[in-house]
C-alpha cells in the first residue's frame, strides 16, 4: 500500500512538471493527472519501490554531493576517449573487482558510474556482487595480484556508492 502511494505521488509530481506551461494547471489537467498517476502507480509499484532506502533525505544529499565529482570524472573520461580515438593507443582487458557492496542500489550506482568514467565499462556482475569491468588501458601492476586493487580502476567510487546505497 505504502509502495503504491509513494509511486503514485511520484508519478503525479512528474505529471505536474510535464504539463506545466507557465500558468497554473486547470482542474481538468489535475483530475486527469490523479487518475493517470493512480493507474501508473498501481502498475509500477513493485518495479519502482523494493525498499524504502531512498526515502532517507541523507541519501539524496549524498547524491547531490556526488554529482560534481561525477561530472568532473565524466568530462575527464571524454577527453580520455577522445585521445584514444585520435591516437588508437589501447590495451584492453576484462578485470574483476570486488567492491564489497551488498545492496542493488549501490551496485547499480557503481556500475553506471564506472561506465561513464575514464576508460572503464562494466560488463557483468556475478552472485557475490563482483563486477567485471572492461578496461581500455590495463596497467601492468594491477595484473600481479588476484583480488584486484580497485583504486586504479575506479578510484573512490565504491566509497561513494556505499554512502549512497548501503
Amino acid at each position: 500500500m505504502l509502495a503504491f502511494i509513494a509511486s503514485a505521488v511520484f508519478c503525479f509530481v512528474i505529471w505536474l512538471l510535464l504539463t506545466f506551461n507557465g500558468r497554473m494547471w486547470g482542474t481538468d489537467e489535475i483530475v486527469a493527472g490523479i487518475v493517470m498517476a493512480c493507474i501508473a502507480g498501481y502498475i509500477s509499484r513493485k518495479i519502482f519501490i523494493k525498499d524504502f532506502k531512498l526515502a532517507n533525505p541523507k541519501r539524496w544529499l549524498m547524491i547531490l554531493a556526488y554529482l560534481p565529482r561525477f561530472f568532473y570524472e565524466m568530462a575527464k573520461a571524454n577527453f580520455d576517449v577522445a585521445y584514444r580515438v585520435l591516437t588508437g593507443r589501447i590495451k584492453p582487458g576484462i578485470v574483476k573487482i570486488a567492491p564489497d557492496l551488498k545492496s542493488d542500489l549501490a551496485i547499480t550506482t557503481l556500475a553506471n558510474s564506472i561506465t561513464l568514467t575514464p576508460g572503464t565499462l562494466s560488463v557483468d556482475v556475478d552472485e557475490e556482487k563482483n563486477l567485471y569491468v572492461h578496461w581500455i588501458n590495463v596497467k601492468d601492476e594491477v595484473l600481479e595480484k588476484m583480488p584486484r586493487d580497485y583504486k586504479p580502476i575506479c578510484s573512490t567510487f565504491p566509497e561513494w556508492a556505499r554512502r549512497i546505497g548501503e
Binding site: 584492453p92 556500475a111 561506465t115
Partner: peptide
C-alpha cells in the same frame, strides 16, 4: 545509456565475442 551499454556488453560476452587484443580476461 550506461544501462544499455551493460546489456550489450554482457550479451556480447555471453555469445562468445572475445575482446580484441585483450591482455587479461577474468570473465
Amino acid at each position: 545509456n550506461p544501462t544499455g551499454a551493460h546489456a550489450i556488453a554482457r550479451a556480447a560476452h555471453r555469445s562468445g565475442v572475445k575482446p580484441a587484443r585483450a591482455v587479461v580476461d577474468d570473465l
